[in-house]
């Protein structure tokens, strides 16, 4: 079964990052603290469906859908 992606988590759902796939954006995402083990919650999404703002480590970071799709997560509660 394919792992859950950050882009597939609904607003307000808490999840933990399992892995960040290789991509040119990976170093940038890592330096923002989006690393395995980090707790992330999607907050709100722009009207066009991308980007989405995520709460991570006390900050709010906006990511495009394509970048959020490269982040594998597990849901912590529903």
């Amino acid at each position: 079964m394919d792992a859950l992606r950050l882009s597939g988590i609904e607003h307000g759902g808490l999840c933990r990052i399992e892995a960040v796939e290789e991509s040119p954006a990976k170093p940038r995402l890592q330096s923002l603290g989006l690393v395995p083990g980090a707790l992330v919650t999607p907050l709100f999404t722009a009207s066009s469906g991308s980007p989405t703002a995520y709460s991570v480590r006390g900050a709010v970071i906006a990511l495009r859908r394509a970048d959020a799709e490269r982040i594998k997560v597990t849901r912590l509660w529903d």
Binding site: S23, P24, A25, R28, L29, L32, P51, A53, A59, V60, I61, A62, L63, R64, A66, D67
Partner: peptide, 10 residues
């Protein structure tokens, strides 16, 4: 377009 990661400050 590459990627976009922007902090939204309080």
């Amino acid at each position: 377009s590459s990627s976009f990661a922007l902090e939204l400050p309080p």
